[in-house]
């Protein structure tokens, strides 16, 4: 593999890894609120979380560009502390995180809804505070859902193309992830070999992630009734 290909792989892993880890707490909090709380506007929050699933990725990228642009509300807020995410790998991570969010929330929410809440009540009668119940009962019992969401989100973040291309463009070594690099190689005559190698690698990473997730999930559910 050429240095250019390695560069795309490293950028991809960095962008997808950071995007997944930073989105994870937000995704779990959203899943928890959607699964457990009743509040006005819940349907709207639900729709907003899932919007990136159905919106053309180009539109999501464009909205990010408006929000984080020089005149955008988030762009100005970041500029005031001397940070810009435009054309940076951090911007690519934001785009990947937004696109991955609905895929992360969904399995976590399902796990929270499927969990037997009477076990939490039983723990409370044994003197466990709300936090202890959460840490020792809720979290371990929904762990398979958290793992599934994280792996799905990571795979989605690795494959994100449209929103990233619009939001931060494809700068080799900075924002050019695997799919953007494949696209770039396909535009150049004679580079089909590189495109094919990266395509196979994408398949390998995605497949490996899914197998790992299933293995972890099975491990986590082994002791459940």
């Amino acid at each position: 593999m050429t240095p250019a290909e390695w560069q795309a792989i490293l950028v991809s892993l960095k962008v997808a890894g950071v995007a997944t880890l930073c989105t994870l707490p937000l995704a779990f909090a959203l899943a928890f609120v959607l699964a457990r709380r009743r509040f006005a506007g819940k349907a709207i929050v639900d729709a907003l979380v899932n919007l990136p699933l159905v919106l053309p990725p180009v539109v999501t990228g464009y909205l990010l560009l408006i929000a984080f642009g020089r005149d955008g509300p988030l762009g100005q807020a970041l500029a005031s502390v001397g940070v810009s995410v435009l054309f940076r790998w951090t911007g690519a991570a934001i785009a990947a995180g937004v696109m991955a969010l609905p895929l992360m929330v969904s399995p976590m929410r399902l796990a929270l809804e499927a969990m037997d809440r009477r076990l939490e009540a039983a723990a409370a009668t044994l003197g466990a505070s709300r936090w202890r119940v959460f840490a020792t009962i809720t979290l371990p019992l929904v762990l398979p859902g958290i793992i599934a969401g994280t792996v799905l989100g990571f795979a989605k973040a690795l494959g994100e193309f449209g929103a990233t291309a619009i939001f931060v463009s494809a700068i080799p070594g900075e924002t050019e992830t695997l799919p953007l690099a494949i696209n770039a190689f396909l535009q150049v005559p004679g580079r089909e070999g590189a495109a094919l190698r990266l395509a196979l690698l994408s398949i390998g990473i995605a497949f490996g992630a899914l197998v790992a997730a299933q293995w972890w999930q099975r491990r986590a559910v082994r002791h459940r009734a």
Partner: peptide, 15 residues
């Protein structure tokens, strides 16, 4: 509340 409960369905923690 300091009250122990033995539930009808036992509710042992499966994990």
């Amino acid at each position: 509340r300091d009250l122990g409960v033995m539930f009808q369905e036992a509710r042992l923690f499966p994990h």
